[in-house]
Write a protein that binds this DNA or RNA. Sequence first.
DNA 1: CTGATCGTCAACCAAATGGTTGAATAAGGG
DNA 2: CCCTTATTCAACCATTTGGTTGACGATCAG
Lengths: 127, 127
Amino acid sequence: MRQDLDQVFSALADPTRRAILTMLLEDDMAVTDVAEPFEMSLAAISKHLTVLMQAGLISQEKRGRVKWCKLEPDALKDASVWMQGFGQFEPVNLDAFERFLAAELPEQPDATATATATTATTGDDRP
Amino acid sequence: MRQDLDQVFSALADPTRRAILTMLLEDDMAVTDVAEPFEMSLAAISKHLTVLMQAGLISQEKRGRVKWCKLEPDALKDASVWMQGFGQFEPVNLDAFERFLAAELPEQPDATATATATTATTGDDRP
DNA sequence: CTGATCGTCAACCAAATGGTTGAATAAGGG
DNA sequence: CCCTTATTCAACCATTTGGTTGACGATCAG
């Protein structure tokens, strides 16, 4: 269990990986589409996705030649409990969360629209 | 701000550092006393404390020749908001947190008693 | 079958991390 | 003043991390 926390927290420590999770909050995505907004090789993103997988933060399912990535928010539960125990923080402030989303997505003024559009452009592989 | 999250999450990714935070939940502690339960050099603990400092998770104050370490749980606020946004988890389950505490403290069957006792043995330096 | 696309693997690299030891600084106590 | 205690600093080391490139196995399209 402390092993789990190690993996979850260190997965979250990288801004690229947090941005990926944020993108997946919108919708499931193919590996190539996840990689698209980053200035980084596909192989690098593939490694990041492996880290997120091993931490249990996402799952991956191959359909055809496309591998779909899905957010698994339950993996954050233990870590969230751990953290909140320290402060007994007031109830979640969703406005604050919205600000994080805006701050962490890779560039792009309107992240929501773009993410959806990107998925759509190559959506032909989906059953 | 994403810089802050980087530092907070990567600070939390190490079990030694999480254990230190857990100990400090009990009470403020001198560096030497923090180091005592770990099988690791004092210098190593000193480095861990520096990491926790830079993440804002603790503060340190030197009184005499003793440097006191104090938990700063507010630093967890942003990170906690970030995480909870993903799952909208139900209110904190304090029992679950207690289990984490037990699991993460360095060995010792009765962590609570020992931590307090350790502080007391060298408590002579406190004003 | 052939060719393009999707994704990972392998080898490599630079930088960061987590630990060690030994010396150095700072402050208190006799 | 000298000795002990408290803590950090500096140099070093092994391992991990985050990235690159190029080759490769799978899968789909024509």
